[in-house]
Amino acid sequence: MSAAEPTPDLPEAGDRHVCSAKGCRQAAVHAVVWNNPKLHAPDRRKVWLACDEHRRSLADFVALRGFLIEVVPVEQLTDADG
């Protein structure tokens, strides 16, 4: 896989969100919101966090599979996301 392969359940580092791309430790500023309808309830919103560099590759990864819901700034995430 590419360098943008997601790392599942990556915790926050201190007070900042960390990009979900494999090996990336940059601050996340985007939230890639997705749902796999074969695994998740229709209202479930899974989130990968992304830095500027990995926003497109992470979004493209889930979009290619038809899972992408939206990409929003991290500040717009709610308790329903996750």
Rank of each mutant, 00 (worst) to 15 (best):
A50T: 00
D79P: 15
K46E: 12
V29T: 12
L39R: 04
A59N: 02
G66W: 05
A27L: 01
D81F: 13
P42Q: 15
K46A: 15
E53H: 08
P42F: 13
V71A: 10
A4E: 01
D79S: 14
A28S: 08
P37D: 03
A63Y: 09
H54C: 02
A50S: 03
L77K: 05
E75W: 14
T7C: 11
A3C: 04
A21G: 13
V29W: 00
A27G: 07
R16A: 15
P73C: 10
V47W: 01
R55K: 14
L49W: 07
D81N: 05
D15L: 10
H40I: 13
D15A: 03
L10I: 02
T7W: 06
H17C: 09
S20M: 09
A41P: 00
A41G: 11
G23I: 01
D60Y: 13
L77G: 00
S2L: 11
R45N: 14
C24K: 00
V32E: 07
A3S: 08
S2H: 03
F61S: 03
S57G: 06
N35H: 05
R55Y: 00
P6F: 13
V72C: 12
A31G: 06
F67E: 11
C19R: 01
E53I: 02
D52N: 05
W48T: 00
A80I: 03
V18N: 05
A3D: 11
P6L: 13
H17L: 08
T7F: 04
A3H: 06
G23V: 04
F61W: 07
S2F: 03
L64D: 10
E70T: 03
A41V: 13
A27Q: 09
Q26R: 09
